[in-house]
Every structure is written in C-alpha cells, then in structure tokens.
C-alpha cells in the first residue's frame, strides 16, 4: 500500500458534529482515486486533512511507509511531500509561470531547477508562456500551470480539489482525458475530488462515494462494487 489512511475523524472547531467520521482508505502506487460526493459532504475537508492543513481528532496516515500523522505525531504540510492543485489554482499572482513552477524546487542546483522547469513546461505544453504572469493566461492554461507547479517537486501523492470546476464544459472533457494520460505517464499516485460522475468515471481507477463524511461505497472502474465495512475498510484491489 502506498497511502494508508485509517480511522480519520475530524470536527471543525465551530461545528456541532464531526465533519469526517472514521474515514479509512488505502491506495496503491500509481493509482488514481476519485472522491465523489454532494456539496458539503466533506470532500475538501478530507483533502485538507491529508495535506496537513487541518489537524484531525484521531486517525493515522502513512505515505510510502512513513507515518505523517498519528496520535503522537503531526508532520507539517511542507514536510509531507503531498502536492495539491487547488480549485482556484492559487497561482502566485506576483510570480511568472516559470517562478511559480520553480517555487517548490529546493535543494537543487540552478541548472537542475531549470532543466526540471523545461521538462514541466514540455509536459503541459506551455513552453512559450514561461515569462507570463498568471493573469495573462486562460483558465485552462492556468490549470495546467497549477498542475506543473504541483508536479515539479515530484510529490509522493498529488491531490486535486475540483480541478475542472472553473473550466467550461468542452474544455473540461478535453483536459480530463489529457490529465489521465499525463498522470499515468508520470506514474504518480493521485486523489481528486469532484461532484461530477462523468469526471470521476473518466479519470479514476476507483471511485470513493462519500456522504456526510463517511464512505458509502467504493467502486472500481470495472464497475465492481465493494461493500465497505464501516469500521475498517479492507479494500480488495483489482489491479
């Protein structure tokens, strides 16, 4: 198992009931997981917990065998090796495309950084745009830069919060396809959150349906449904 999430429970400080209840999920290396649920079901919250932006009341998370969250341990977001593509992209408005992509590259020689930048630009097909500022790009281009920025430091897990919601429908379909190819090509493990069935089906190896902060069921792309044991999830992997 590449990513192991166990028994995650979390309640916002000003909320009356837990937003996430006993959430458990294991993910294989290179797998693409989609979390599907209604608005307010806790999708973004799960991602924030995985990223370390919120601190859960209980639960453990291991990535690549390393514990990044447990009862006694909390690894801050900057040390987790989790990359995130935000819903509104969150590209730094005061930096060019190149600066944005290189922001996460540290402990590298200048030449290595530049090489990695070129590699990323190639990947997202925006070579001629590296000196532009984010506001000079279209929505789709911004999204690709956000992806490149998150991929550049080679995170062990990449998470997306509603990556297509800011794009118009025709673009959505096109990018969706491209994204799957791209993710499989880099072999990166990823989770993305959506409330759109079609998105989930087109992209994911497995779909996790959530409702009110708990997993309802998990469906593989080959349409096999697994009933989930609420307390502890033991996923049968199909690949």
């Amino acid at each position: 198992m590449h990513v192991q999430i166990e028994d995650l429970t979390f309640q916002y400080r000003n909320a009356k009931t837990p937003t996430i209840k006993n959430f458990s999920l294991s993910i294989d290396k290179g797998e693409i997981i989609s979390i599907l649920g209604d608005s307010g079901s806790g999708k973004s919250t799960i991602l924030r917990l995985i990223a370390g932006l919120e601190i859960p009341q209980s639960g453990t998370i291991k990535i690549d065998g390393k514990t990044i969250l447990s009862h006694t341990h909390f690894t801050p977001p900057e040390k987790r090796g989790v990359g995130m593509v935000f819903q509104d992209y969150a590209l730094f408005p005061h930096m060019t495309v190149a600066k944005n992509i290189m922001f996460g590259l540290r402990n590298m020689k200048k030449a290595e950084k530049l090489a990695r930048l070129e590699e990323m630009l190639e990947l997202i097909n925006l070579k001629d745009f590296k000196n532009r500022y984010p506001y000079e790009l279209s929505g789709g281009q911004q999204q690709r830069v956000a992806l490149a920025r998150a991929l550049a430091p080679a995170p062990s897990l990449l998470i997306f919060d509603e990556p297509f919601s800011n794009l118009d429908a025709s673009l959505q379909e096109k990018i969706r396809g491209e994204l799957r190819v791209l993710l499989k090509q880099t072999g990166i493990t990823s989770i993305f959150v959506t409330h759109d069935q079609a998105d989930a089906k087109a992209l994911a190896d497995r779909i996790v349906y959530i409702k009110n902060g708990t997993i309802e069921r998990i469906v593989s792309s080959t349409s096999l449904t697994f009933k989930v044991n609420r307390a502890k999830e033991k996923v049968l992997t199909i690949q």
């Binding site: 977001p77 900057e78 430091p153």
Partner: peptide
C-alpha cells in the same frame, strides 16, 4: 489563506 497553503504544500516553511 489559499496562497499561503499552496506555498506550504510546495515545501516552503512558514
């Protein structure tokens, strides 16, 4: 908070 969070997820300390 988004820019700050994005930065930290890219490995930058506070």
């Amino acid at each position: 908070n988004t820019f700050t969070e994005a930065s930290r997820l890219l490995g930058a300390s506070t």
